[in-house]
Design a protein around this nucleic acid. Structure first.
Length: 876
DNA sequence: CGTTGGATAAACAAGC
DNA sequence: AGCTTGTTTATCCAAC
């Protein structure tokens, strides 16, 4: 190899000649072994320091208990202890990167373990995921380095990543549920459920996350010119024009799908594999940042990101999470047209973390008009600029070895389910996901499957969705309890300590130690997942906690259940390794000080939810993601004073002093939902953590913290028929024709399996004192409603037709119609029949007032805790 | 030490 | 009958 031999054992340093320095340059000095230790041979300059290299080898990194380095870059989790070594090997300087995140040298990424890199006389090194830079300048200029490795960085083609990509064909063959449409599931090509198709045209969906993880090609090296862009969407080969103003990237992929990126003055040419035809980039954030969609169907297409949008929006986020491939070879060109926004560009960030999470962790591209530097993170473990602290790596699924993955079974299940396009999987689908992505389980005996089933049954955040009767297949679908889903997904890839394996010190342990809401169901265990025990065993909230709700403990039996509400504490999640990528093209100081932030999310007495971001010493730049919803805390761009928190969720980016929502929607600085949906056209909150019918507009709230898929055309609505006697179960009445719909019953997904028709004569039992009148004043009495069926806990007991009915649905003013001024009250009533044979687990009433000002004011009162999952019905 | 989180095993039932 | 799916109980272990 052309790289020089390692080590500074040189004997020819005396050959160095005296040099005169340019006036504006640091002094260039002669160097000889005799002068070692006294004469600087190179200079390192950081933002606040200057270091003269006088020895043959310097180590740049961060000090630790294991010792100090020569150049301490401070405590930054993105910098490894011995991140870079620079050594002098006559007559050149070389750089060896040992930092897990690699390093950028003049914008060219150097991965860990790469051969020694011949440093040019002057260059800038930047630590990935940070804006921490070091200028290197050789003071020994007798010999200019040959233009070896830097001669044509844009065209340099590096080794492809070695990624273990499960064989798709094999997967499809072995999948118990091969997609009827040839769907490639979101991130891992894991088998999808029979319903995991979108549309009917055989479109395959591949998330950006998948792209970032799975594609194995070296990103093109950017030019270091002003306004340079860098593309790290893996799977893209790049080339650049000589002047660096135009780059072209061609995506090739034989098996895995391709990545796409859009960059200033950059064409992205995608050559789609057979069977893949077009690609979409979906954008919809950042104010008027607009939507960028590529649809290259059978021919080239161009992504145009209107630069006017760039001008008007400091940051434009392009969510390329849903990249669609179809069925014939095609070429697509994505182009970002720059019409004068100097220095602006688009940062593409193909998040890896939570990559199995599918579309919610897609590619996010941001651009800024303020600077030319673009950082990009289409990240691959150990290769790209990892979002993960070096000490806390997060390997993607698709384990590269057969060792046991560092995830609990519950995490694996969450990974699997969240990877499915429709966020549900059968048991066998879960199996397949695991065996597909973690080879360990291919060879292990079947005990792990038992454990998977055990976890599904035991953990109440896994909810079973029965199939409809006419649907083929065995077993139910499993989902993640919607109120918990965001958190669980966010935690699903956090490595946990392997049993018997010593653990490194968590970089943010001081945050981890702060357990803000120990009684919360969101309590995060070591694996980051809520466990039944944590939900049931823990005691009352500590008085010191800010957790301000009423007691949510049902003390009726040995189980004490916590309310699954919309308040939760992010805890250490926050902060760190959950896979948030922060890309910033500004030249302002940039920090990733996850350790300085504590994120508390709460419902305070006013009913407003907000998160206090407590920044210690440094501006917080990097907080958390919650199920793919990014919360970025930054210093303000203008003057670096104060903390500006940006919450990015779906379609809103909001600056403000506090985080407004976690997973909710903010508009104009006003919290609109607490993780729910809002009709963005009218600003009317539709749900609090729930779902309305599609698009919110004109729809009705269907659930609170649940999900329904209900066609509400025609003004139909869900009606709850509440229990009026011990002999009558609570029923959820749905509009007719909903035999394949979902309803949320106390947070549990249920499919409508009964087509029982209840005549309108039943209206007398509808729990609606006013007769269920919709916004138009018309009767909402359902026409031929479909009875969901008896929603009961466990098996009906002999002689007691319906114990423990947990029906949760919309009652009363259940039609919150955007056309109406009726912001209404959504009342959720769960009724517990009392029987002498067992204790009622709870009687719960939730009220959520959606106020006139469209701010979500979730006031939740619970007399006792709801039993949300796996309730024991046979308690004697 | 007790508690907690998690892994593992196994009994058992229901349904295909 | 055998398998898969799902529930439940029990035990063990390591970390806290």
């Amino acid at each position: 190899m052309s790289a020089p031999s390692k080590g500074p054992h040189q004997h020819a340093w005396a050959l160095l000649a005296l040099q005169k320095s340019a006036p504006a340059s640091p002094s260039v000095v002669p160097w000889s072994p005799d002068s070692k230790g006294s004469t600087a041979i190179a200079r390192l300059e950081g933002k606040e320091f200057e270091y003269m290299i006088r020895q043959s080898r310097v180590v740049i990194g961060r000090n630790s208990s294991k010792g100090d380095v020569d150049v301490n870059m401070g405590h930054n989790s993105f910098i490894s202890r011995k991140h870079i070594e620079i050594y002098f090997d006559t007559p050149y300087f070389y750089m060896q990167c040992n930092g897990k995140n690699g390093v950028f040298v003049d914008g060219v990424f150097q991965r860990k373990g790469a051969p020694p890199f011949l440093l040019p006389r002057q260059c800038t090194m930047r630590f990935p995921s940070t804006n921490i830079k070091i200028q290197f300048q050789s003071l020994v200029d007798e010999f200019d380095p040959p233009p070896a490795r830097l001669a044509s960085p844009p065209k340099r083609k590096l080794q492809p990543l070695r990624i273990s990509i499960p064989e798709q064909d094999d997967a499809n063959l072995t999948s118990p549920f091969p997609s009827p449409t040839g769907t490639i599931s979101a991130a891992n090509s894991c088998p999808t459920s029979p319903r995991s198709y979108h549309g009917s045209s055989g479109i395959s969906h591949v998330s950006g996350a998948a792209l970032g993880r799975r594609l194995g090609l070296q990103p093109p090296a950017p030019t270091p010119a002003a306004g340079a862009v860098m593309l790290s969407a893996s799977g893209i080969e790049g080339s650049s024009s000589a002047d660096g103003t135009k780059q072209q990237f061609t995506v090739r992929h034989g098996g895995p799908p391709a990545a796409v990126a859009a960059l200033r003055n950059t064409e992205i040419k995608m050559t789609l594999a057979p069977g893949e035809e077009y690609v979409t980039l979906n954008s919809g954030m950042a104010g008027d940042g607009g939507s960028a969609t590529i649809l290259a169907s059978g021919g080239p297409a161009t992504l145009m990101v209107a630069s006017s949008s760039i001008k008007n929006a400091p940051e434009t986020y392009i969510d390329a999470s849903g990249i669609i491939f179809d069925s014939s070879p095609a070429a697509m060109t994505a182009q970002y047209a720059d019409d004068g926004v100097t220095g602006s560009g688009i940062v593409l960030d193909a998040s890896e973390s939570g990559g199995l999470g599918g579309s919610h962790n897609g590619i996010h591209a941001s651009s800024s008009a303020s600077g030319g530097l673009l950082s990009v993170g289409a990240e691959e473990s150990g290769y790209f600029t990892s979002p993960h602290p070096p000490d806390q790596p997060n390997s993607p699924p698709g384990a590269k070895d057969d060792s046991k993955p560092p995830y609990s079974y519950a995490q694996l299940i969450v990974q699997a389910i969240s990877s499915a396009l429709d966020k549900q999987l059968t048991l066998s689908g879960i199996y397949s996901y695991i065996t597909k992505n973690y080879p360990y389980y291919r060879t292990a005996d079947k005990g792990w499957q038992n454990s998977i089933r055990h976890n599904l049954s035991l953990n109440r955040y896994f909810v079973k969705v029965p199939r409809s009767q006419e649907e083929p297949g065995k077993g139910s679908f499993w989902r993640i309890d919607p109120p918990s889903e965001v958190k669980l997904v966010d935690q699903a890839f956090k490595r946990r300590r392997q049993r018997g394996v010593p653990i490194f010190k968590a970089p943010f342990s001081h945050i981890s130690a702060s357990r803000s809401a120990p009684t919360s169901p969101s309590h995060v265990g070591m694996s980051g997942l809520v466990t039944p025990d944590s939900l049931s065993r823990e005691g009352s909230p500590s008085p010191s906690e800010h957790y301000s709700h009423d007691s949510h403990h049902y003390q009726g039996d040995s189980h004490s259940y916590q309310a699954e509400s919309h308040h939760f504490t992010s805890e250490n999640t926050s902060t760190s390794s959950s896979g948030v990528h922060f890309s910033d093209s500004s030249n302002s100081s940039l920090y990733h000080e996850g350790g300085t932030a504590t994120l508390h999310y709460r419902d305070d007495d006013l009913g407003d939810a907000h998160c206090d971001v407590i920044a210690a010493a440094s501006p917080v730049r990097h907080i958390t993601s919650q199920g793919g919803k990014y919360i970025l805390a930054t210093t303000s761009g203008a003057n670096n004073v104060g903390t500006v928190v940006k919450t990015i969720e779906g379609c809103s980016i909001v600056d403000g002093g506090v985080v407004k929502t976690v997973g909710g929607i903010i508009e104009g600085g006003v919290v609109k939902t607490l993780g729910g949906l809002m009709d963005t056209s009218t600003g009317i909150v539709k749900t609090v953590g729930g779902i309305t019918d599609a698009g919110c507009a004109g729809g009705m709230v269907r659930t609170i913290s649940g999900m329904t898929k209900v066609d509400t055309s025609g003004g139909q609505q869900v009606v709850i028929q509440q229990t009026t006697s011990d002999q009558t179960p609570t029923q959820v009445l749905l509009p007719s024709g909903l035999s394949k719909s979902y309803v949320s019953v106390n947070g549990e997904m249920r499919r409508v399996i009964s087509a029982n028709t209840i005549g309108s004569s039943n209206s007398g039992t509808v729990n609606n004192s006013s007769g269920a009148v919709n916004s138009n004043g018309n009767s909402c009495k359902p026409q031929k409603p479909v009875m969901l069926g008896i929603v009961s806990c466990g098996q009906p007991q002999q002689g007691t037709p319906s114990h423990m009915v947990y029906a949760t649905a919309i009652s009363s003013n259940n039609g919150i119609n955007s056309n109406s001024s009726n912001n209404g009250t959504v009342t959720v009533v769960t009724h517990q029949q009392q029987e002498t044979t067992f204790k009622p687990p709870f009687m719960q009433t939730k009220q959520m007032q959606i106020s006139e000002d469209n701010e979500a004011r979730g006031t939740l009162t619970s007399t006792v805790e709801p039993v949300l999952k796996k309730p024991r019905c046979d308690v004697p």
